[in-house]
Design a protein around this nucleic acid. Structure first.
Length: 196
DNA sequence: GGCGGAAGGG
DNA sequence: CCCTTCCGCC
């Protein structure tokens, strides 16, 4: 027993992991070494906080920009992160360094000019319980559909940014001709995650 | 505040 | 690998 930190069990389905009802590809977890005892990653934790209304005053999605969030109370977010990782000396300076390492990994990027504001590259996240994406795949050849094989991190072609994918993928009702077959309605999707 | 190099730990 | 710690620089 190290701290009072509890690790929420992450229910798994073959090939995918779940956070708060949203499925992510397993490459996002890189759990190849020790499947059961993977430490929580910072961006998982950020999504976790973003998901809970009780932390709305600490960290919240920025309305208007998909995937963009604002850390309203940096000290508190750092404190919570430090508690989870059993690192009592955690502060925003250190936490933000960890966030900066996500830039090269294309998980996050900074919203320049906006204080404590970052943005998720949701193009790297695959929502597997959205069959709609798979069905409509032909028109969106650049989108990542289906989990890439293990050890093969999917890369979005240069120039194709997350926003492109988001704008195309977001509408609940697709414009144009009505879908020929009844598209299965996703239980939970990206727009639920980002609070649309 | 925000950036990224460097060292180092688990 | 994924940070944590520290730091000089802008």
């Amino acid at each position: 027993m190290h701290c009072g930190c509890l690790a929420e069990g992450i229910p798994t389905t073959p090939g995918n992991y779940w956070i708060s009802g949203v499925a992510f590809p397993d490459w996002a977890y890189k759990a190849e070494s020790s499947p059961g005892s993977r430490q929580i990653q910072l961006w998982h934790f950020i999504l976790e906080l973003l998901q809970k209304e009780e932390f709305r005053h600490v960290i919240a999605w920025q309305q208007g920009e998909y995937g963009e969030f604002v850390i309203k109370d940096p000290d508190e977010v750092a404190r919570l992160w430090g508690r989870r990782k059993c690192k009592p000396q955690m502060n925003y300076d250190k936490l933000s360094r960890a966030l900066r390492y996500y830039y090269n990994k294309r998980i996050l990027h900074k919203t320049k000019g906006k204080r404590f504001t970052y943005k998720f590259n949701f193009s790297k996240l695959i929502i597997v319980n959205c069959p709609l994406w798979g069905v409509q795949a032909p028109s969106l050849p650049h989108l990542l559909l289906g989990a890439p094989p293990l050890g093969r991190p999917a890369l979005v072609p240069t120039g194709v940014q997350s926003e492109v994918g988001m704008k195309v993928a977001l509408p609940r009702a697709l414009p144009g001709p009505a879908p020929a077959q009844e598209a299965p309605v996703p239980a939970l999707c990206l727009w639920d995650l980002i609070g649309l």
